[in-house]
């Protein structure tokens, strides 16, 4: 009897914990599959047709996707820009170019970061538009 009374609260805690885990498991499964479906609709996870097809077109980099944390080296590389194109177009004087970020360059040039980022995006977009 005494043992039964001691076990009862422990059992209740375990029942509560099990139910909580099952609810959290169901919720996390729902959220995950919801996201996975959204990705499938966006063109990812499109099954056995091949990864190369699944990776287009959303993974193709666009100039608006350039961020302030990106380095010029990286931007030149992924957009196939000539090494000094952005340096000349934006009149960047920093000696560290292209091994510096857009944010660092904006600071060195004394231009607000957002304004400078828009200039980088515009210059990249205009080069991409000119080259096939």
């Amino acid at each position: 009897m005494i043992l039964g009374m001691a076990i009862k609260p422990y059992r209740n805690v375990l029942i509560g914990l099990t139910l909580l885990c099952l609810i959290l498991l169901a919720a996390s499964a729902y959220l995950f599959f919801n996201d996975a479906l959204a990705m499938r609709r966006a063109g990812f996870l499109s099954g056995p047709r091949g990864w190369h097809q699944a990776r287009t077109p959303e993974t193709a980099p666009t100039a608006t996707g350039i961020r302030a944390w990106m380095t010029f080296d990286f931007i030149n590389d992924i957009f196939d820009l000539p090494p000094d194109y952005l340096k000349n177009t934006l009149s960047i004087r920093a000696a560290a170019y292209p091994k510096l970020t857009v944010a660092q360059a904006a600071k060195l040039e004394g231009i607000p970061q957002d304004e400078f980022l828009l200039k980088v995006q515009a210059a990249t977009a205009s080069y991409s538009a000119l080259t096939p």
């Binding site: 099990t18 885990c21 099952l22 959290l24 498991l25 996390s28 499964a29 959220l31 995950f32 996201d35 996975a36 959204a38 990705m39 966006a42 990812f44 990864w51 699944a54 990776r55 959303e58 993974t59 193709a60 980099p61 666009t62 996707g65 992924i78």
Partner: peptide
């Protein structure tokens, strides 16, 4: 690697997937 340049838009699915795996283990 699969997400490519869209990785920042879809990183949520990964964290939720890992949470799901953790919940399976804990349950």
């Amino acid at each position: 690697y699969i997400l490519g340049s869209a990785w920042q838009d879809h990183i949520g699915v990964l964290t939720r997937g890992v949470f799901l795996i953790e919940m399976v283990g804990i349950t």
